[in-house]
């Protein structure tokens, strides 16, 4: 079966400082990402701030235009769609945003915000009240909240509104951009539970972006690890053991809720290179415990193993 979404050589540069007397500097936020997202699967993208994972999510939805490379949704290259066709295409692909606090217009009631997708897409809804109640029930919100304003809701409730808005147009594909990062752990677990249920019931395809490897391993079918704009490892099964030293370090940084499994954290020496001035070799070399002279000079290519495990490292672990 063909993948629902397919990324080929996706690259995005950001320029800064092209002002008076300031040299123009270019930063490559996403560098040559090639990835297939199979239908009905949950693909996790994990990495720390500045690794380009949020930019990747926006490139996939073409909220940002790619510098080079392509995104294909169900066979259609969304980079070459004219504006009207792109707007229509957005019915199929939606996003849940990181910050539920600013994701709803403060002047909109919850009901108006949830129904805005139909207004934007100029879709007539036969019974708007019933549809609103249905959407709110779907995400576990009391329909009585429809007349409330965002500031009257808790963070978790707002994120449910964000999910309801994203689902209104019956999309097949959702980009979840750290949907729980600004919520309490108890609420995070609620929202992840909700997203799991929706994926199962509606057969959705997710691209789940997170900095939390343990959450990604729990929630996703497949894991993509990014470091400074590049994919360094792809785990075909979320619970496979990572082999890239950076992915190892990420895993080692998660503390289990179990005092019997305490860890000795290995200190990463060295500094994270500036994204404006990446080294010629592996971007992780400066902090990597396994780095050799080769890593400083030659950038490792992403190599696919027989089991579909992809890794970009001269010295994979294990």
């Amino acid at each position: 079966m063909t993948p629902l979404v397919s990324l080929k050589g996706l690259t995005r540069d950001f320029a800064s400082g092209s002002g008076f007397l300031k040299p123009r500097r270019v930063m490559r936020a996403v560098d040559d990402v090639t990835l297939d997202i199979p239908r009905g699967s949950v693909t996790g993208v994990v990495g720390e701030s500045g690794c380009g994972k949020s930019t990747l999510g926006r490139l996939v939805l073409r909220l940002l235009a790619a510098t080079s490379g392509s995104v294909t949704y169900d066979g259609a290259d969304i980079g070459s769609l004219p504006p009207a066709a792109l707007r229509a295409m957005r019915r199929n692909m939606q996003m849940v945003f990181q910050d539920p606090y600013s994701a709803i217009d403060p002047r909109y009631t919850i009901g108006r915000a949830v129904m805005e997708p139909y207004q934007v897409q100029r879709i007539a809804v036969l019974d708007p009240k019933a549809r609103l109640a249905e959407l709110m029930a779907m995400v576990g919100l009391n329909p009585g909240l429809a007349a409330s304003y965002p500031h009257q809701l808790s963070g978790g409730q707002k994120q449910r509104v964000g999910i309801a808005r994203a689902l209104a147009l019956n999309p097949a594909f959702l980009v979840l951009d750290e949907p729980t990062a600004s919520l309490d752990v108890s609420i995070q677990a609620q929202i992840i539970g909700l997203l799991e249920g929706l994926q199962r019931d509606l057969g959705l395809t997710y691209l789940f972006i997170s900095h939390d490897l343990s959450l990604v391993r729990y929630f996703c079918d497949r894991v993509v690890v990014m470091y400074l704009g590049r994919v360094v490892e792809v785990l075909p099964q979320a619970r496979a053991t990572p082999r890239h030293p950076y992915a190892r370090a990420l895993m080692n940084s998660h503390f289990e809720p179990d005092p019997a499994r305490r860890k000795t954290v290995q200190m990463l020496r060295g500094v994270i290179p500036s994204p404006f001035n990446l080294p010629p070799g592996c971007a992780f070399a400066a902090r990597c415990p396994a780095a050799t002279a080769l890593c400083q000079t030659d950038r490792p290519a992403l190599v696919t193993g027989t089991d579909g495990h992809q890794i970009a490292c001269h010295h994979p672990q294990g």
Binding site: V185, S186, A189, G193, S214, R217, Y218, F219, E256, D258
Partner: peptide
């Protein structure tokens, strides 16, 4: 007990992360 259960443990089976209903 609920707070502990909010963090996905090592090899926690899918669909078992429940959270705590409601808010503080």
């Amino acid at each position: 007990a609920s707070l502990i259960a909010c963090i996905p443990a090592h090899d926690q089976p899918e669909g078992t992360l429940l959270g705590i209903p409601g808010t503080v």
